[in-house]
Nucleic acid binder design. Sequence first.
DNA 1: CGAGTCCTTGAAAGGTCTCAAGTCACGTGG
DNA 2: CCACGTGACTTGAGACCTTTCAAGGACTCG
Lengths: 245, 245
Amino acid sequence: MTAKISVNNLPTKDRQHCCNCNLNSLCMAVSLDTREMSKLDEIIARGKPLSKGHQLTVQGDPFKCVFAIKTGSVKTVTTSCNGDAQITGFYFPGDLIGLNAIDSGICQDTVSALETTTVCQIQFEQLDDLSAQMPKLRRQILKTMSKDLCNEQHMLQLLANKNADQRIATFLLRLSNRFKARGFSESRFRLSMSRNEIGNYLGITVETVSRVLTRLQKNGYIKVENKEIDLINFKALLQLSQESE
Amino acid sequence: MTAKISVNNLPTKDRQHCCNCNLNSLCMAVSLDTREMSKLDEIIARGKPLSKGHQLTVQGDPFKCVFAIKTGSVKTVTTSCNGDAQITGFYFPGDLIGLNAIDSGICQDTVSALETTTVCQIQFEQLDDLSAQMPKLRRQILKTMSKDLCNEQHMLQLLANKNADQRIATFLLRLSNRFKARGFSESRFRLSMSRNEIGNYLGITVETVSRVLTRLQKNGYIKVENKEIDLINFKALLQLSQESE
DNA sequence: CGAGTCCTTGAAAGGTCTCAAGTCACGTGG
DNA sequence: CCACGTGACTTGAGACCTTTCAAGGACTCG
């Protein structure tokens, strides 16, 4: 996990505030002015780093907080009554999670760290109160949820229509875009999730994930080295991901 | 399309207001007091009925309004750049649609009436302004979006894990629950969507939809008569829908 | 009442899954 | 620092489910 985020070079104390966080353009703080940002800052708690495999929330817990990922990555897992566990998302720095619990008041998924991860924690009630006074913050929360809805609709489209190759190509390109937006390399990155987790997320088996990665590598579209992925032929990947059935 | 909604018996004028609408317990107005409801009422426009096949919004249009379904039903269709059309949802009286456009400011899907449909139309900007003054309304909007997120996560689970029989069983039970919540029969209802639309929504082909319906009927779980569906053995359907792979 | 669409049913093809075995990477403890 | 063990990953072969292609029949709407 290459830590290119420049804020990591700041003294510890300064790092702890939104106004110094270089994720504030991705995060909820986007579009807030300095004073607003510091008001938001007051209701944010920063915890100790979460190590790999540890859980931020457990499905069924009462809903109190939303979380913004600062460094690292997490997965959200929903377990249905029959015991099937489904990964519903992977989240990276700047992403906000927990908003799907507002309706029921109960955490809808178990959030686990895929690697060492730090988060900002925000009491939802306080955030909601603050949003009454700050239209831009209110709008930002709505935008976040709206974007989440769109992302899930893209996943529906993927799961309903695409074959295994297209799913993997789409998955890799989407990761690439998200890393790019965070200032990381768009062509070379490390998968913090296992093949099993990728397969679960994409609705295919581990074996199929492995076979497809091998196939894409043989085609010269990508280079795979364990968890390290190089995207070599973006155009081909894009074409593959968009192909009609 | 049995119109059992008692409000239809009221004089036309009275029907046009949230306070008289018997959907207000399902819709955004839930939890608002009389004065709040009338303020909400002021920013709502009611249009002429939309006949089958006609479109409420077109994907790509600028986002201005959200809509609450009053009577009838609609589908939301997202067309990807390669031309594949994916149905992302079916909506019934009391449902609110359009919130997924907040982030981009562009309508994310084409909304088409599955039958004659009436809607309430709300300018989003006005709704947002009103929500600043009315915490309960603000919370209700968030709840709606949160519930939408959860619904889509259930769909992800369905598409990633379930076979055709389980998908259809789950689909029918979910419809049943939604009709029940609206005061309609939970065991007998009319599908306003075609087999093709069901298949598209569930990620299977028309032929498979048809075969599964026939199979469920042969098992005595349901009775199919064209668009009319009777759920006969709820227990078996529930068990089927929850089976692990 | 006729045209067109929707729905159903059958048979063959194809893609993914399952099961199985072997390889590889990584963390632990000696 | 190396050996070892465990879990993750890869690869193969056969089975199974859904799709595809095709055709007939039913329903709907002008």
